[in-house]
């Protein structure tokens, strides 16, 4: 479960005012809101990349507010995938496990399984340059899942894709969430995405989250 309690954050252009909400474990939540309302900042606060002025983030009963981003068990997929520009798809996918100094054979097996699951086996030797938008998002998902997170944060993952590719990825996201029993918080401004994916719907407006 993700539990966000009284998160406050101010910057030029928008403010988050005592934002509180919860997403039950294993559920797919979609957070909607207009562009420039602080959705990305909220995700960055949840995964620890940004420090809020006040408030706390809980995963289950664990207060992770003071934890480093890498020890929260939260994976983050930004809007453009943010693939590492000098690594092959294979190296990106195994990155988190390499950082944990896991044996090469285990990394190889996990990468192979995730690549098969996300349909990127044929891309493993490729560099990110030249991948299509949909392929980049699949690689970013594989890279995030390799760390075996309990929570996945997705920042408008479908916004730059054409409708057919969006439909493909919606199916991938549904299957992924079901197979990995993962809690997902998906940020978007698209009603279509929310209708296709949301088990829990949240809206960010005027600096507050409304359920």
């Amino acid at each position: 479960m993700i539990h966000v309690e009284n998160i406050t954050w101010h910057t030029t252009g928008f403010r988050l005012e005592a934002v509180s909400f919860a997403v039950p474990a294993g559920k797919y939540a979609v957070l909607m809101g207009k562009t420039g309302t602080g959705k990305t900042s909220l995700l960055e606060i949840i995964c620890g990349l940004r420090k809020p002025l006040s408030g706390r983030v809980f995963l289950g009963n664990r207060d992770v507010s003071a934890d480093a981003p890498g020890s929260r068990g939260i994976a983050y997929v930004p809007q453009d995938g943010a693939l590492f520009p000098t690594m092959t798809v294979e190296a990106q996918t195994g990155f988190a496990l390499r950082m944990q100094k896991r044996p090469a054979s285990e990394i190889h097996q996990v990468v192979k399984a995730l690549a098969a699951e996300l349909g990127i086996t044929h891309l493993l030797k490729r560099m990110p340059q030249g991948l299509s938008g949909g392929e980049k998002q699949r690689v970013a998902l594989a890279r995030a899942l390799a760390a075996k997170p309990s929570v996945l944060l997705l920042d408008e993952p479908l916004s730059s894709l054409d409708e057919d590719t969006q439909d493909d990825l919606v199916a991938v996201l549904k299957r992924m969430q079901r197979d990995h029993a993962i809690t997902v918080l998906h940020v978007t401004h698209s009603r279509r995405e929310a209708e296709a994916l949301a088990e829990v719907r949240l809206t960010l407006q005027d600096g507050r989250v409304v359920v």
């Binding site: 960055e44 995964c47 620890g48 990349l49 480093a68 981003p69 890498g70 020890s71 929260r72 939260i74 994976a75 983050y76 997929v77 930004p78 453009d80 943010a82 693939l83 590492f84 520009p85 990155f95 988190a96 950082m99 944990q100 970013a140 890279r143 995030a144 760390a147």
Partner: peptide, 14 residues
């Protein structure tokens, strides 16, 4: 872009 660094930090990097 600083984004790939951010992602790397969520994946366990300092």
């Amino acid at each position: 872009s600083a984004r790939p660094e951010d992602v790397a930090m969520t994946l366990g990097c300092t």
